[in-house]
Design a protein around this nucleic acid. Structure first.
Length: 648
RNA sequence: GCUGCUGUAGCUCAGAGGUAGAGCACUCCCUUGGUAAGGGAGAGGUCGAGAGUUCAAUUCUCUCCAGCAGCACCA
């Protein structure tokens, strides 16, 4: 048999018989490494210890110390161990797929009865038993026909379907965890005992469609999380608790920002506090847009179906539109209107009034447009995913050669706004032509190039999402990362030559002839509702001072301080600070607690001493120590903080 | 929309086939207290909506509505 050369991480090379496995290589180095080994990297590829190596390669043996492969294997083996546990408990259950996901894994099962929380406990216990058995993991490559026959025999129709969809040139690999067997591309651990038995937890069970297709069978998906050790699991569970504490639905209630009720599903009742956040943010956006050369418009909510037919929305999105029929006695026929699901067709109507010259371009038209979309009930989520919302929408009507500079300008605009709002970690994705599309390849080439050049011009890198663009044009998506590592796609910019065509927008060029403008659909926050939800969760309710609905509470310690408290409130209000007095007959402890829970950033406490000295004792949210300050000094300090970032 | 779970006082939740309970919040009284809950008393509910079974339903069954988790969706 021929020899092959293996190159080790330290650069050394040794020759081995062709077909040697990493397990044998590890055993040749030391017995302890052979025991500790979990997998290998062969030419950078994650490689099972049992897989033979057929040609000259680089090799590195992985142990539990190598985080990425270790987590991958632990989670992947747990998926198999869970499937085995389930089939041992309920032999009739059909297995399907069980991939590794962020923080853990899931496995989809077909079973007539639903899994209960008690079942999860049983499964978890059985999994621990299997881990303790330290059953060997084995693998073989099988001929396709044999594998299909095997699964027909054992009554696993989903596996048969999976094999049939594996491309013909790929091997069909079988794995065994003890006697239990599954189809799997691997790699896996050496034996089940390599999985840490105390670092995983089954989290939940939920429905999921077979192969993600809503027209196919609904399976039951069990989710688990897993780590390399108990401590990492504990940290993860703490993080989940932290996320639950930040839940904007809970904080929205506690801070009296908004509520929702079943008579208006997916729509927000903004309370005084929440509406203050909303209008403060909107005022800020309005000033920023004006500064960046936008004109602001406002267009109708309820628009006749004719316009939606012309724009193409009636055909494509009718199911998701709120349709309003007016059937008054005096009407000859029913008028059919729809609440606008977006603002662009209306903006084109504004554009179309009067002849436009090339000198009018680029025309940047903005609207805080209230839209309504009939979202599927299961999609609704607090104020993050709603049926009634307001976009910070804008459309830039421009000539083709203006796409790049206008896009670059928008990116700079958005960067400034995200920074002002405290988001410094965000990325750009460029979605390119999808399979189903209109327009020539040359047009797509130039539109995609224009967006890429704009990112470069603005000084930002971007990732390409192949085929993810809209049918009418490519788009940029701006995704920000929050304080606990979650991603939110907020901003967007889409190139559209289609809608100006459909709605017959035009301008007179320098050549005296009519031309079509291109529209850039763009938004920075997305919707106010969702963005405020993100802000609440980002800050765990502790909004930056300028956005906080109640910035200062002046809390009296003794009732003799009431008059002075009123004066302090008036002084602060005059300085532009949102302040209110708390004169209730309660102890200062009580007031501090209540307003801390309500996330008021500053509490000013007033007792006999402050009244006599005309001072205030200031306490910041989350800080234990207090400062005694002159009233005028406090007013000046807080007035500065109360200014929105663009006015500082 | 699909699967599963849930719906009892403003909030968080307990409860049982014979028309309901706690803590906090609320109102009043006492207390004027120095930085995350001072004490006492009181008031507050068509038990999500409708239908069915039953002598009797908030409790059991069905339908609907809404919410939660996930999936699908997100112009």
């Amino acid at each position: 048999m021929a020899d092959i050369f293996l190159t080790f991480p330290d650069g050394s090379q040794r020759n081995f018989a062709q077909g040697i496995t990493p397990a044998e290589v590890a055993a040749g180095i030391s017995t302890s490494l052979a025991k500790k080994a979990i997998s290998a990297q062969v030419n950078g590829e994650h490689w099972d210890l049992q897989w033979p190596i057929e040609s000259d390669s680089s090799i590195a043996i992985n142990t539990m110390k190598d985080e990425a492969p270790a987590l991958e294997l632990v989670r992947h083996d747990l998926a198999h161990i869970m499937a085995r546990a389930v089939q041992e408990l309920w032999p009739d259950v059909k297995v399907t797929i069980g991939p590794v996901i962020q923080h853990g894994w899931y496995y989809d099962f077909d079973r007539a009865e639903p899994f209960t929380p008690e079942d999860l406990g049983l499964i978890e216990k059985k999994m621990k038993d299997i881990i303790n058995l330290r059953d060997e993991v084995k693998t073989e490559v099988w001929p396709r026909e044999k594998a299909i026959a095997h699964y027909r025999e054992t009554g696993e129709p989903y596996k048969v379907e999976l094999i049939e969809s594996i491309p013909g040139d790929e091997p069909i690999r079988m794995y065994w965890h003890g006697a239990w067997q599954d189809l799997c591309r691997g790699p896996h651990l050496q034996h089940t005992g390599q999985v840490p038995g105390d670092a995983f937890k089954l989290m939940s069970v939920a429905g999921a469609y077979w192969r993600g297709d809503s027209s196919r069978a609904m399976l039951q998906r069990i989710y688990g999380v897993a780590f390399r050790n108990k401590e990492d699991l504990r940290k993860h569970l703490n993080m989940l608790e932290e996320a639950a504490k930040r839940d904007h639905r809970k904080l929205g209630r506690e801070m009296e920002l908004f509520h929702m009720q079943e008579e208006a599903p997916g729509q927000v009742f903004w309370h005084p506090n929440g509406w203050k956040v909303y209008t403060t943010l909107q005022d800020y956006m309005r000033r920023m847009q004006e500064r960046d050369g936008y004109v602001e418009v406002n267009t109708p909510q309820l628009v006749n179906r004719k316009l939606w037919e012309e724009s193409g929305h009636w055909d494509k999105y009718q199911e998701n539109m709120f349709i309003v029929e007016v059937d008054e006695d005096h009407a000859r026929e029913k008028a059919i209107n729809a609440l606008k699901p977006m603002n662009c067709p209306c903006h084109v109507q504004v554009f179309n009034q009067g002849l436009k010259s090339y000198r009018d371009l680029p025309l940047r038209m903005a609207e805080f447009g209230s839209c309504a979309r009939y979202e599927p009930s299961g999609a609704l989520h607090g104020i993050m995913r709603v049926r009634g919302f307001t976009q910070d929408d804008g459309h830039i009507f421009c000539a083709e050669d203006q796409i790049t500079p206008e896009t670059a300008k928008f990116i700079a605009f958005l960067a400034r706004i995200y920074a002002d709002l405290g988001f410094h970690d965000w990325t750009i994705k460029l979605s390119t032509r999808p399979e189903q599309r209109i327009g020539s390849d040359e047009t797509w080439d130039s539109m995609e190039t224009a967006l890429g050049e704009a990112c470069n011009a603005a000084g930002y890198e971007f990732e390409i999402l192949e085929g993810e663009g809209a049918f009418y044009g490519p788009k940029l998506e701006f995704t920000l990362t929050d304080a606990i590592g979650r991603n939110w796609q907020c901003g967007t910019l889409q190139v559209d030559a289609n809608l100006p065509e459909r709605l017959d927008a035009s301008f007179i060029g320098a050549d005296g002839a009519k031309h079509r403008p291109v529209m850039l659909h763009r938004a920075c926050l997305g919707s106010f509702e969702r963005f405020i939800g993100i802000l609440i969760e980002e800050h765990a309710g502790k909004l930056p001072f300028w956005l906080a609905p109640r910035q200062v509470v002046v809390a009296t310690i003794v009732s003799e301080a009431d008059d002075y408290a009123r004066e302090v409130v008036e002084t602060l209000k005059a300085a532009g600070v949102r302040a209110e007095a708390d004169l209730r007959n309660e102890k200062i402890n009580y007031k501090v607690r209540e307003h801390s829970v309500g996330k008021v950033p500053v509490i000013l406490a007033l007792g006999h001493r402050e009244v006599e000295e005309r001072t205030v004792t200031l306490r910041r949210l989350g800080e234990k120590q207090t400062r005694v300050l002159e009233l005028d000094a406090v007013a000046a300090e807080l007035a500065g903080e109360a200014l929105p970032p663009d006015l500082r």
